[in-house]
Design a protein around this nucleic acid. Structure first.
Length: 463
RNA sequence: GGCCACGUGGCGGAGUGGUUACGCGCCGGUCUGCAAAACCGUUUACUCGGGUUCGAUUCCCGACGUGGCCUCCA
């Protein structure tokens, strides 16, 4: 089965051919660990988890390496640490913040049914690789030292001959366009407005490491260099797939390409660039100021969104209802719809034996067409193919939702008995009154018949 | 201002140069004492204006609208 993926760089969908089918390599930009991940953060995590699962299915579990970094050096982390642990030395406080946030992140994405990546490297454990790349860039004439900063020069990159890509090719804009569009003052240590920071000096008390390029003052890395360093360490100079949110295309991924290709003299950093679209909440951009900011944890464990909590599988299916490159509108209605399907499938396939389903896989191989895939799941349900449905759910990480068995209190039980008696006497008025009373208590009755045609009443709790 | 993406039936959301998406909802039916649940069935679409074509929702141009990037951001 041929896998086709859309590449942001070439802006077309084409057959995916791994550099080495025995070692398919994917890198995805992961979280900056300073606070709970929000539902927008969950989108790339889920989307690329589905791709990871598909690649494992196509090439074998042992032949796919998925790297998702953890950014644990950042101003936001420093601010958070100083705020939350004012009594501690900054470095100690930072470690508390990053360790705790990393745990929370893992708990959340586990609940969403995501597999752990093969490697989750931390930025602070790859400072040596970052320094090494920076040294190569300075030696190659692509970067320069100024006021204890090391800066990358896109114009030097574009002036160089050879195999290098043109700076701006991923973001599809020229250097001139970037200069024209720049709306911030150019820092005094920059030669050109488009130069970006590879390394910067640390203020006293901030995390710091020995600086590269002969700089005496200890410093810390710029934002973009970590991904070049970690992908190099764990995947090599070039690899197959690089993913992330579409907002990362510029400047983050453009700069990664510049760093890696110039350091290693390569034509491409990744063979395929994949970017998921943005998420809105109830038709509006999610923001703290609008009051619609929502974390994964709040969806899973509080009543903040839609007045109730939601299963991880419901959130996952709701996320996959929209193709990953489209913008998605995160709504309560969509969650209700996803939950209806999850509960129905879970019950329908609860005793099934998972078997593979080629139609579902075929939908995914078309650039992760998850809406088509979901249509195939509905088709399996309609056709009564429980084993295939169960197998497809398993492959996709959609874990069946099983409600913990609950018991009714004595009052409700006696009411049900009283109603059964009333029905036996054809006292419909009393029967309906009791049914309404139970409904008000949140107990929904279902009248049916057993195999012998005898009247049977079952119940369930309303949600 | 520059660049990019998108605009499908009541709603969500795929896809295609000529044929059923799918789901939710609505409506109808079966079932039921009546409902609910369940099952079955029906219904409605391709922003607007040009162009290419035997034929366009699908390709091209333009308009309008929405969103994103250009600054930290999934």
């Amino acid at each position: 089965m041929e896998l086709r993926l859309y590449d942001t760089l070439t802006r077309d969908k084409r057959p995916f051919t791994p550099i080495d089918p025995a070692n398919v390599r994917m890198y995805v930009c992961g979280p900056t660990v300073y606070d709970f991940a929000h539902i927008g953060n969950a989108r790339p995590v889920i989307v690329f988890d589905v791709l990871f699962r598909l690649l494992r299915h196509l090439y074998g579990e042992a032949h796919v390496k998925y790297v998702r970094n953890i950014t644990d050096v950042d101003d936001k982390i420093n601010d958070r640490a100083a705020r939350d642990y004012p009594g501690l030395p900054l470095n100690e406080a930072i470690r508390k913040v990053t360790e705790q946030t990393e745990r929370q992140f893992h708990d959340d994405v586990d609940a969403l049914g995501c597999l752990r990546p093969t490697v989750e490297p931390r930025a602070t454990e790859h400072i040596g690789e970052m320094r090494s790349i920076i040294e190569k860039l300075v030696a190659g004439g692509f970067a320069y030292v100024e006021q204890d900063h090391v800066l990358f020069s896109p114009s030097a990159m574009n002036a160089a001959n050879g195999v290098l890509p043109r700076y701006g090719s991923l973001a599809n804009r020229s250097l001139d366009e970037m200069i024209a569009g720049a709306r911030v003052d150019v820092a005094p240590y920059k030669r050109d407005a488009t130069d970006f920071v590879l390394w910067k000096p640390s203020k006293p008390g901030e995390p710091s490491w020995p600086s590269p390029a002969g700089i005496a003052t200890p410093g810390r890395p710029g934002w973009h260099i970590e991904c070049s360093a970690m992908s190099w360490k764990h995947l090599g100079e070039t690899f197959d797939i690089h993913g992330g949110g579409i907002d990362l295309v510029f400047p983050h991924h453009e700069n990664e390409v510049a760093q890696s290709c110039c350091a290693f003299h390569t034509e491409r950093m990744a063979q395929t660039w994949m970017h998921n679209g943005f998420l809105q909440v109830e038709g509006e951009k999610m923001s703290k100021s609008l009051g619609n900011f929502i974390t994964i944890r709040e969806l899973l464990a509080t009543n903040k969104f839609g007045g109730r909590s939601w299963d991880g599988a419901t959130l996952r299916l709701a996320m996959l209802k929209t193709h990953y490159r489209q913008p998605i509108d995160w709504t309560v209605d969509a969650l209700h719809e996803a939950e209806k399907a999850i509960l129905d499938w879970s019950d329908f396939a609860k005793d099934a034996t998972p078997v593979r389903c080629d139609e579902v896989i075929a939908a995914l191989t078309d650039d992760l067409n998850t809406p088509k895939m979901i249509a195939e799941l509905h088709a399996l349900r309609r056709a009564g193919k429980a084993d295939e449905l169960r197998g497809a759910m398993q492959l996709l990480g959609i874990n069946p939702v099983v409600r913990a068995p609950v018991d009714l209190d004595a009052t409700a039980k006696s009411l049900i008995e009283a109603r059964t008696a009333a029905r036996a006497n054809k006292d419909w008025k009393e029967s309906d009154r009791i049914r309404d009373e139970l409904a008000a208590m949140g107990v929904v009755l279902k009248d049916g018949k057993d195999a012998d045609g005898k009247s049977v009443t079952t119940w369930e709790l309303a949600r």
